[in-house]
């Protein structure tokens, strides 16, 4: 129940965005290459996807470090980063199913969501979605390491949510962002969480563009994969030396 509510809360912004874009599109037919049909689909799916690795995963990762439960985790003969990822995946199954149902209900009843551009797009969307999931979990894992140094996990949580919702393209498609922000968002890995899968879904990226997007996404995935393990070791050693 709590999970359902938490997801519903994030969906408040779906309704706000729907109303905003509805008003915006009443004046013009297309904005930055998006039609109203595509925009509706984008809004709803973006929030659904971003809800996948939600508040619960982040607070669990941070909680482990903050409450000192980490010492128990470390006695297990497993890679800490990988166990955290596995736990995140487990939790996301529930959240994923709930948000899938919500998307289907809202999508058919209110939003009139568009189907994927093509069967190939649908398949590649699934691949990109999965990669995006791992990217987001890894990013949250990296941020949770900061809990070694601060007690203010709520602040971190907010910062993390805000940055991801902007730079992943959840709040607004990358194509509509103002100049400098757009450049930053296009280079960073966070776009892989929402923007890349949805561009594929809507058929906004074809041929070499599409290949480039996927290459960027998987490149970042590899970098984050190794970096997170290294950063974890560094952070843990640093704190241990301080006696914190």
């Amino acid at each position: 129940m709590t999970t359902l509510f938490n997801i519903l809360i994030t969906f408040i912004w779906v309704f706000i965005l729907y109303a905003l874009w509805d008003a915006a599109f009443s004046e013009t037919g297309a904005i930055a290459g998006y039609s109203w049909d595509e925009m509706r689909t984008y809004i709803l799916l973006a929030y659904g996807i971003n809800a996948l690795v939600g508040w619960r995963v982040a607070s669990q990762m941070m909680g482990t470090i903050r409450t000192g439960e980490i010492t128990r985790e470390l006695t297990r003969p497993l890679n800490y980063r990988s166990t955290q990822l596995a736990a995140a995946a487990g939790m996301s199954v529930v959240e994923g199913l709930i948000s899938l149902v919500l998307i289907l209900v809202l999508g058919t009843l209110l939003f009139d969501v568009q189907p994927p551009d093509s069967p190939v797009a649908a398949a590649l969307f699934a691949v990109a979605l999965l990669a995006g999931f791992v990217i987001k979990a890894l990013c949250i894992f990296l941020i949770s390491l900061l809990c070694f140094w601060t007690l203010n996990s709520v602040g971190l949580m907010w910062a993390q949510q805000a940055v991801i919702s902007v730079l992943s393209g959840t709040l607004i498609p990358l194509a509509m962002m103002p100049g400098a922000l757009r450049v930053v968002a296009e280079v960073l890995p966070l776009r892989g969480i929402v923007s890349t899968p949805l561009q594929i879904y809507l058929g906004k990226a074809q041929g070499w563009d599409l290949a480039g997007l996927l290459a960027l996404q998987f490149g970042w995935l590899a970098v984050l994969w190794f970096f997170s393990d290294w950063a974890w070791r560094k952070a843990f050693n640093a704190v241990e030396i301080q006696g914190g």
Partner: peptide, 15 residues
């Protein structure tokens, strides 16, 4: 971190 988090959260809407 608290200030940053809060500002970012509300700043996101601004963006």
């Amino acid at each position: 971190i608290g200030i940053l988090g809060a500002s970012l959260m509300h700043g996101a809407g601004l963006v």
